[in-house]
């Protein structure tokens, strides 16, 4: 189910493990950002953060269960782009995620998604048990 329409500045979409659904979401968001004349770096940052957030929600939240979905609500305005990513998992403690940049963790192949989201987004919040991620990209701060 999707309420994102071509040419829209906001939407709500249920994403499963299908790459096509995520790509359709990315295309809708990129169109809205382009309409609001966001720059190349903003488009790169937001595309990466959406990818990381949804993949974390599918893999770590929903434990790759194909019966579960991830809800993504988004809104783009001239000043900011806001996203809510909500999975059907049991949540997690964001403070307990190991720092992947420490020397002893540098060669571990996973665990970098959340730090990339924090690096590229202006604000990141975890709601509820941790299965609801809110992330906001503020334009003035980044461009």
């Amino acid at each position: 189910m999707s309420t994102s329409k071509a040419g829209s500045d906001s939407g709500s979409v249920m994403v499963s493990a299908s790459a096509d659904e995520l790509e359709a979401l990315q295309t809708s968001v990129a169109s809205a950002l382009t309409r609001h004349t966001y720059g190349e770096h903003a488009l790169f940052a937001i595309r990466l953060a959406i990818e990381e957030a949804v993949m974390n929600a599918i893999r770590h939240g929903n434990l790759s269960d194909p019966r579960k979905t991830v809800e993504v609500r988004w809104a783009v305005s001239a000043d900011s782009a806001a996203f809510h990513i909500i999975d059907q998992g049991e949540g997690f403690d964001p403070g307990a995620v190991p720092d992947p940049t420490l020397d002893e963790n540098l060669e571990i192949p996973s665990g970098r998604g959340l730090m990339l989201i924090r690096a590229y987004m202006s604000e990141v919040r975890h709601h509820g048990l941790g299965n609801h991620l809110e992330m906001i990209f503020r334009r003035e701060a980044a461009e």
């Binding site: 790169f44 990466l48 192949p109 996973s110």
Partner: peptide, 17 residues
């Protein structure tokens, strides 16, 4: 290459090892 995710970084780390 224009975009790269953390999963791709994971593959590079595996290849490096």
């Amino acid at each position: 290459v224009e975009h790269l995710s953390s999963a791709a970084l994971g593959t590079l780390i595996t290849v490096n090892s």
